[in-house]
Simulated scan of single mutants.
Amino acid sequence: MKALTIRQPWAGAIAHGTKRVENRTWKLPAKHEGARILIHAGAQRDRQAQVSGDHLDVYSAIVAIATITECHFSVAGTCCGPWGFERAYHWTLADVAALPEPVPAKGALGFWTVDDDIVNTVLRQDTGVAW
């Protein structure tokens, strides 16, 4: 299974909030559109982020599962609500489910393959969403 590392507080806003778009400078590879992925909270915080709330202090752990439903480029910045950045690729997310217990894991840049032991630990958790 693939995971995507996202810095806090963005990973927490996806897992426990309303953020349903991930901003990237690169286009989503077609093979990942429609894929179920794990959301990994990176080891570092985005110091420029102005987001507050619960669940934003988890680092280096899988915090949620999600489906990437599409990718589009935003020029005007008027789409994807308050979360979509201008002049960025917007990867839209659906079926997001937070893990009851974050699963520690070392992340990587881009998409990365999660070890089977970690995937099994994630799968054992009751997220209320079908895999």
Rank of each mutant, 00 (worst) to 15 (best):
T67L: 09
G12E: 01
L28W: 01
R124Y: 04
H55P: 07
D57L: 07
F111L: 14
A13G: 02
A64H: 03
I62A: 08
S60Y: 05
V122T: 01
G84C: 02
W131C: 04
A94V: 01
V58N: 01
V129N: 06
W112H: 07
Q48D: 03
Q48S: 02
G81M: 10
K106V: 15
R20Q: 09
T67I: 02
G128Q: 01
K106W: 12
W112Q: 06
C79P: 03
W131F: 13
V21M: 05
A88E: 09
A105Y: 01
A35Q: 07
G107K: 13
I6P: 04
L123Q: 14
P29F: 04
L109E: 14
L123S: 14
A97K: 00
R36A: 14
K106Y: 09
A13I: 04
T69D: 06
W26D: 02
L56S: 05
L99T: 00
T127Q: 03
E86Q: 15
P82H: 11
G34M: 10
D115L: 05
Q44R: 11
F73T: 02
Q8R: 14
A41H: 08
T25F: 08
A35C: 07
V114Y: 02
A94M: 04
F85L: 15
A64G: 04
A43K: 15
E70C: 11
P104D: 13
L99A: 06
E33K: 12
A130E: 13
H16N: 09
E33R: 15
N120W: 10
V58K: 05
H40T: 04
W131D: 02
E86T: 15
T25C: 09
E101S: 12
H72M: 13
W112C: 00
